[in-house]
Design a protein around this nucleic acid. Structure first.
Lengths: 207, 207
DNA sequence: GTCTATACTGCGATAGAC
DNA sequence: GTCTATCGCAGTATAGAC
């Protein structure tokens, strides 16, 4: 008797309605809808982010979703843009630290971000508009990362022809993401070795 | 709005035979359902792989899906297992080539596989059973890759303490996948530089 | 093994009151 | 700006005939 029909019910957690002037308005309805969508996407996948589920989590009625977003795709796009702004700000801030390479590694290890990223990647593979926006975002990220890595490598006296900054940036960021992605499903084989290897390379630079 | 044309080119190499009743039995209904699901997942994402769509693509009626698979999750699991078997076979074959490292790179550049992999990863992040199966598969892959890389590095006289094979295997495979993933959404910035860099490292080994 | 038929739930989206 | 109400359709899944 295998369990069938595992319909998931909304968690039941009610939104924090910080009643300021008798109205429930913590950050604006539009942003609450975006946040609710992002959380559902992270927790259960984009397919679970329906207008009804999103509205319930944001504490409004379903039809209101369509007042702010003509279609669900527009809502997904807003989630991407909102997340992108936050991520870019985080990135710029972190890369001004004394060690951009280690910061780059650390940032891309954030499991919350990699799970969300996987979800958006899957979405982007099948929705043209989202693919275009994700690409645009990723290019901006790469440029910022490359600039920071360039300065870092130069300060270490590394030959930038032999070790192009854009390559090092991709290497560090993408490997960190891979590790995080794998960890998300419980796969850790080789992770510790990779971490030590990367750290050893970092250490070699400041030798 | 896809036409109702029957799909007669499943990815698999299952022998096609006609039964006494004159019906085309290319690999069996079960496998056709799995193949149809895989194709829909690849083309439109897992959310589009519904029992109705799958049945239509496989040329059977919707209810028959539930004769072979108690729930849609079981069908997804079958897709994963089927793909995993194929991938493992491909992997073992490719890694017996004269140059396992380049083979590893090439294999993980296959866009078809990376798109599907993203889809399964997203699914795995939210469905326990799929996560467990994906992890199991990934571990087997990593072991095979590591063994091949070990032999390769040893033949090049590389210091296996300084360059642990499992690390090199992850590095090559995951970077190739990253490039492929990005290409899928039209992002190519830094790709050519990375390719050249990786090739240069490979060339240095056989120096 | 495959079909028809159906139960029930949830979906995206719209109309129109307040 | 938010709501109620509703349309039409697609989703998973089951029952039972052949």
């Amino acid at each position: 008797m295998p369990t069938k029909a595992r319909k998931l019910r909304p968690g039941g957690e009610t939104p924090r309605r910080t009643t300021v002037h008798g109205k429930l308005d913590d950050g604006g309805t539009r942003q609450r809808l975006v946040d609710a969508t992002a959380q559902i996407m992270h927790d259960e996948g984009y397919a679970a982010a329906t207008s009804r589920r999103v509205a319930a989590k944001a504490g409004v009625k379903q039809a209101l979703v369509y007042y702010y977003f003509p279609t669900m795709d527009d809502l997904f796009l807003a989630v991407l843009r909102s997340g992108a702004e936050t991520a870019l700000e985080q990135l710029r801030k972190a890369l001004t630290e004394d060690d951009p390479l280690r910061a780059l590694w650390r940032l891309n290890c954030d499991p919350r971000q990699t799970v969300m990223s996987t979800e958006l990647m899957a979405l982007a593979n099948h929705r043209k508009a989202i693919g275009a926006e994700l690409r645009n975002f990723a290019e901006r990220v790469r440029d910022i990362e490359t600039a920071a890595v360039t300065m870092s490598l130069r300060s270490y006296g590394v030959d930038l022809e032999a070790y192009p900054p854009v390559v090092i940036a991709m290497l560090v960021a993408q490997l960190a993401r891979s590790v995080s992605n794998e960890s998300a499903v419980g796969l850790t084989r080789g992770h510790e070795e990779l971490r030590q290897f990367v750290e050893a390379q970092f250490a070699m630079l400041s030798r």
